[in-house]
Design a protein around this nucleic acid. Structure first.
Length: 591
RNA sequence: GCAGACGUGGUGUAACGGCUAACAUACCGGACUGUCAAUCCGGAGAUCGCAGGUUCGAGUCCUGCCGUCUGCGCCA
């Protein structure tokens, strides 16, 4: 080793020892005959002192040293005088008096400051990701990510799980997200697909008798980016045999609780995790991934609104749609401009408009729609929403789905505006009891509400023939602070039911057998009842690290347009490579 | 695919359509033996993302393109 200790290791108890350190120059402070260097490695920062009198040679070498030079220094650990102690650094009570300095490698001035406080443009960070990763924020995030994975592997290993790798080159399947395709050289005109998740493979591992499987699995989806979505991301894929929903929920809840408490400094807001049915979540929060760090629940005022003289409300109710409300506490004094902003939000969500009622100090209403309400009815409305004097009532009337979408977005907005989203808290909840299907009006067929391997509730299986829309499934999602962080289900292990689901979602038997023949066949060779769940590692680590974007917890992420700005991928390839793959580019594409 | 924001020395920002494009920091040189965001003195560094256009005059206004970000569509 080129070092005897790390830069975060030495304390006063090492005083007098001769040590060798190696690392990067974090900062340099020169005082003529005396030079201080903060030497940095992964473990910390240690102050190195070079004295021109004590060691003229090393002083001369150190004179040429600049930021981010890679150094090896040899010297003696000395306790600092009390007035020189730096309490901000773990090693601040000692320093190394150096008599030998070796420049292992010089460094150009970096395009972004490693030790500085400056915010740096995202483009520069990605272009020089290896330098960005040197910075404390990214070092901390990468360490936390590894600690999380270590916790997970130990936890599951201790409970009899086995980690099994599944192929990256696999098969394209219909439905779901767009696949990343890999052309086959050996099979002209045929393609592998990168897995969107190891879903089928983990179920086949259950058929194969492994009973408790997990994998830290890379998944690929060729869809456009969001703050919490990258084209490749990491799932903790878990599958178990002979389990019921409760077994999976308990396992994962324990795992997540332990992981957060071990590797993160965030506080778990609620233990055990509350459970909400999908319907209840929609009713109370307008979404199936609510941020439960704060209240601001939605209230249905359809009945009251229907008795008003306000045409917009009455026609909405007559059409069988809904009028629902959100109360923004203390916002009665909102200006026209601020209300315009809120209006913009609901319109983006598809709503036609936003009705607002300000509750005055005396409890009366100030609103452009007040004239359509008898005083008693208005009082009833205010009571129903639970609004207090000084509050602002926000009302949207539309189809239930649009109302919920609009109000849940508004709710999120007020969570932020009113500082109700404590960044030090993680508030997990389970969402359960999802419908098995959602109706796809465009294609005139049922779509699986999650995926096509999710088992219906046993008591609802008979509905598949009569009323598929009424059937519920054994799906469960784990939600934290408004993010879906895990999803799973008890699976179908019966060929007949699986084929029935395929047909209900519009796959004809031929297609189903071509695409899923292997799994249908496997179900006939003794498939055990099984189920699982797949937490998104990137999202969980993002939340534990308090970061706003999963890029911050991925070492080499892609840009919004799915490019690697450092390596400049994707890139063109040599024409012989295309020939080998039997690929001809379209005429309008330049090679 | 759509919408919005942004793009100015290495980095982060500023500049009413008008003077030599300013400030901070980093960088380079000099001084300095107890600093820890060292300090002090001096210096260099910008084809204002690219291409057009409007104008007596464009970093600034307009159009197109490129890139980054945020959101929508998309994401079983």
């Amino acid at each position: 080793m080129l070092k005897t200790h790390t830069c975060g290791q030495l304390r006063t108890e090492h005083t007098g020892q001769r040590v060798t350190l190696a690392g990067w120059v974090n900062r340099r402070r020169e005082h003529g005959g005396l030079i201080f260097i903060d030497l940095r490695d992964r473990w910390g920062i240690t102050q190195v002192v070079v004295d021109a009198n004590a060691s003229p040679k090393s002083h001369a070498v150190m004179g040429d040293v600049r930021s981010e030079y890679v150094l090896q220094v040899e010297g003696v650990v000395k306790a600092r005088e009390p007035e020189n102690i730096n309490p901000k650094v773990a090693t601040g009570e000692i320093e190394i008096h150096v008599d030998k300095v070796t420049i292992l490698n010089p460094a150009k001035t970096p395009p972004l400051e490693i030790s500085g406080e400056h915010e740096v443009n995202e483009e520069v960070r990605m272009r020089y990701r290896y330098l960005d990763l040197r910075r404390p924020r990214m070092q901390r995030n990468m360490m936390m990510r590894y600690e999380a994975l270590r916790f997970i592997r130990n936890y599951l290993g201790d409970r009899g799980f086995v980690e099994i790798e599944t192929p990256i080159l696999f098969k394209s399947t219909p439905e779901g997200a767009r696949d990343y395709l890999v052309p086959s050289r050996v099979h002209p005109g045929k393609f592998y697909a990168l897995p969107q998740s190891p879903q089928q493979l983990k179920q086949l591992l259950m058929v194969a008798g492994y009973e408790r499987y997990f994998q830290v699995a890379r998944c690929f989806r060729d869809e456009d980016q969001r703050g919490d979505r990258q084209p490749e991301f990491t799932q903790l894929d878990i599958e178990m045999s002979f389990v019921e929903r409760e077994d999976i929920l308990q396992l994962l809840e324990e795992l997540v609780t332990g992981m957060v408490e071990t590797v993160s400094d965030k506080r778990l807001a609620r233990k055990p995790f509350p459970r909400l049915s999908c319907a209840e979540a929609q009713e109370r929060f307008g979404t199936d991934r609510p941020d439960l760090r704060f209240g601001l629940e939605l209230k249905d005022v359809s009945d009251i609104a229907g008795r008003s003289q306000f045409k917009v409300f009455t026609t909405t109710i007559e059409a069988g749609n809904k009028v629902r409300a959100l109360v923004a506490p203390g916002c009665a004094a909102y200006s026209r401009k601020e209300i315009g902003e809120l209006e913009e939000i609901v319109k983006n969500a598809g709503a036609k408009g936003l009705a607002v009622i300000a509750v005055e100090a005396d409890g009366t209403a100030r609103s452009s729609i007040a004239k359509f309400f008898e005083d008693d009815l208005m009082a009833e409305l205010i009571t129903a929403t639970g609004a207090q004097p000084g509050d602002l009532i926000l009302i949207v009337a539309d189809q239930l789905q649009i109302v919920n979408e609009a109000l849940s977005t508004l709710r999120g907005e007020f969570g932020t505006r009113l500082k109700l989203t404590n960044p030090e808290e993680m508030c997990f909840c389970w969402i359960i009891d999802f419908p098995l299907f959602v109706w796809n009006a465009e294609e005139n067929r049922w779509d699986p509400s999650h995926h096509m391997f999710t088992s219906p509730k046993p008591e609802d299986i008979h509905l598949l023939d009569t009323d598929p829309g009424a059937a519920y499934c054994q799906q469960y999602d784990l939600v934290c602070n408004g993010y879906e962080v895990a999803g799973g289900s008890i699976r179908i292990h019966d060929r007949i039911i699986q084929e029935k689901i395929f047909s209900l979602i519009g796959l004809d038997i031929e297609q189903a057998r071509e695409r899923f023949g292997h799994i249908l066949e496997a179900f006939e060779y003794g498939a055990p009842p099984h189920g699982g769940i797949a937490p998104g590692i990137d999202r969980l680590v993002m939340l534990m690290a308090g970061e706003p974007n999963i890029r911050e917890v991925i070492a080499f992420p892609k840009s919004q347009r799915a490019a690697d700005l450092m390596a400049d991928a994707p890139s063109t390839v040599e024409s012989y490579q295309l020939e080998e793959l039997h690929i001809k580019l379209a005429d309008n594409i330049e090679q």
